[in-house]
């Protein structure tokens, strides 16, 4: 309002008195929604993880840290945890790097028909992962699948594998399918980010005779650090959320080797009626997300937004 007032930052109380409606509906209301739908459920989950509960009875039995002790001896927990981390690693390499390269190719006008490319690669982002999963169940089907047929017809029949049946590769099949559906996301972010990089930066590099590979790695990547920070965050949470593809494609099979933490929470809680242990696994997901997010904030994001 008046410039005089802005010399001193008003206190929250002063602000609330001057802007009653904005305070109620603009600050208090969203914080209440946060408290009810995020804060309370998290506290509830943490507390429940100290109990044993079958989900039906009104009484819950306090068991202390027993659920966590069990977790640390649970083979399925470790498989699931490492699967989440593998999922994250594959996602950071395949869709994220490819998304960056495609975005660069579009901005540098190496790729013809940019609108077509963007539309086609972004399209799977709008598909539900259930649809994506069903689609690749058809394509990778061992009897009638197009992929195996294609490999055989170009003389690579030797590469045909049990894409979902082989416990050594089933998880990677899932991560690649997930990457196929995700690539459009980093592409859009990097495409927008590259649009904001000052033209001079590229001009200078070009005059020095840099090729596309050098421009991408030495000019674009450092300039895109804030975008990368956001994309990596997004990828972390997307990888820890992995659930839908597993539910529709493998249900954790073969032998639980494609379980991820998110799916294990669901199995233990809603199928095995071990809600306390399910809650403990939820806490593990939370801990891993917070840990990874902190790591990213401390490294990638450090100074990335000080512009």
């Amino acid at each position: 309002m008046s410039e005089l007032l802005q010399t001193r930052q008003p206190s929250l109380f002063e602000f609330a008195r001057a802007h009653v409606l904005a305070t109620i509906f603009g600050v208090v209301m969203p914080l209440v929604v946060f408290a009810v739908f995020v804060g309370y459920p998290i506290v509830y989950t943490v507390v429940l993880s100290l109990y044993e509960w079958n989900g039906m009875t009104p009484t819950k039995t306090f068991v202390g840290l027993a659920n966590y002790q069990y977790m640390l001896q649970d083979r399925y927990f470790y498989t699931a945890l490492f699967n989440n981390l593998k999922w994250l690693a594959v996602t950071l390499v395949f869709p994220v790097c490819l998304g960056l390269v495609i975005a660069y190719g579009l901005r540098a006008k190496i790729l013809p028909f940019p609108t077509l490319v963007r539309t086609v690669i972004f399209f799977p982002v709008t598909m539900s992962l259930i649809s994506v999963g069903l689609m690749f169940l058809l394509i990778l089907n061992p009897l009638f699948g197009a992929f195996d047929t294609l490999l055989q017809s170009i003389g690579l029949g030797g590469l045909v594998m049990e894409w979902f049946g082989d416990y050594r590769i089933a998880l990677y099949t899932l991560t690649v399918v997930s990457g196929w559906a995700f690539t459009g996301m980093p592409m859009i972010f990097y495409f927008a980010g590259l649009g904001d990089v000052p033209k001079d930066t590229f001009d200078a590099a070009r005059i020095e005779g840099a090729g596309h590979a050098r421009m991408l790695i030495q000019v674009a990547v450092p300039q895109l650090r804030p975008v990368t920070a956001v994309v990596v965050m997004l990828t972390i949470f997307e990888s820890l959320r992995a659930f839908d593809l597993i539910a529709v494609m493998t249900k954790g099979a073969p032998f639980g080797t494609t379980n991820v933490l998110g799916y294990l929470v669901y199995l233990e809680s809603f199928w095995n009626s071990r809600f306390g242990y399910g809650a403990a696994l939820s806490v593990a997901i939370l801990a891993v997300s917070v840990g990874l997010a902190t790591l990213v904030t401390r490294t990638l994001m450090k100074g990335a937004f000080d512009v």
Partner: peptide, 12 residues
């Protein structure tokens, strides 16, 4: 709330 994996709140 954006970053929260759904599985961590699904039981509550």
């Amino acid at each position: 709330g954006l970053m929260l994996p759904q599985q961590t709140v699904i039981i509550p």
